[in-house]
Amino acid sequence: MLNSVKHPRSVLAISALLLPLGTFATMSTASPSGEVLLCEIKATPVGSMIRMEAFAHADGHLGGTYSLQVENSGKSGRSTINQNGDFDAREGRPQLLSSVTLDAGGSAYTVMLDIVSGEKSVRCTKQIGRD
């Protein structure tokens, strides 16, 4: 049996308190038809590691391609991870595009996410680590 939420404001307040646990960057674009495409990069600490997740959000049904690039600079040098593929986002459902988990100690990461759907494109960039 499903439980219903009797106090939606309480749920929103609790969600706002938990938000700092996972930081994120977002950017959106809208077409003349009103469809909105949003990208999100979420970084979540996992022990001594950091998980970076790339999401696409849409206010309707949108498909397209994405490209995720994670640049690392740390004690052991520099490296770049590239991932790309197709996506199919639907209204109200964040579409996980990619996930990368890397060592958090002493490294700085630049994460770039590009999403293209038809004539719409959006880019998110996030700096993680060594403040």
Rank of each mutant, 00 (worst) to 15 (best):
M1H: 12
M1P: 13
S4V: 15
V5F: 08
K6R: 11
P8K: 05
R9Q: 15
R9K: 15
R9V: 03
S10H: 13
L12G: 06
L12R: 14
I14G: 12
I14T: 11
I14F: 09
I14P: 05
S15Q: 13
A16Y: 09
L17H: 13
L17Q: 05
L19M: 15
P20R: 11
P20Q: 10
P20T: 09
G22L: 15
T23Q: 08
A25R: 12
A25Y: 00
T26P: 10
M27R: 14
M27G: 04
S31I: 01
S31P: 02
P32L: 00
G34T: 06
E35Y: 09
V36M: 04
L37I: 10
L38F: 01
L38W: 04
L38Q: 03
C39V: 11
K42S: 08
P45R: 00
V46F: 05
V46K: 11
G47V: 03
G47I: 00
S48N: 05
S48G: 07
S48V: 08
M49P: 02
M49D: 15
M49T: 07
M52L: 13
M52K: 01
E53P: 11
E53T: 12
E53L: 13
A56R: 06
A58W: 10
D59G: 15
G63M: 14
T65I: 13
Y66I: 01
Y66W: 08
S67K: 15
E71D: 15
E71K: 06
N72D: 15
S73R: 06
S73Y: 09
S73T: 03
G74M: 11
G74R: 00
G74Y: 14
K75I: 14
R78G: 12
R78Q: 14
I81L: 13
I81V: 07
Q83K: 14
Q83C: 09
G85A: 05
D86M: 11
A89F: 12
R93P: 03
Q95R: 02
Q95W: 01
L96H: 00
L96P: 03
L97I: 10
S98N: 12
S98E: 14
S99Q: 13
V100Q: 11
V100E: 04
T101D: 05
L102M: 00
L102Y: 03
A104S: 12
S107Q: 13
Y109K: 00
T110A: 01
V111L: 02
L113M: 01
L113N: 04
D114Q: 02
D114A: 03
D114M: 07
D114I: 07
I115E: 02
V116G: 04
V116D: 03
K120D: 02
K120W: 04
K120R: 10
S121M: 12
S121W: 07
R123D: 00
C124N: 03
C124Q: 06
K126N: 06
K126G: 00
K126M: 08
K126F: 13
K126R: 13
Q127E: 11
I128Q: 00
I128E: 07
R130G: 08
D131M: 13
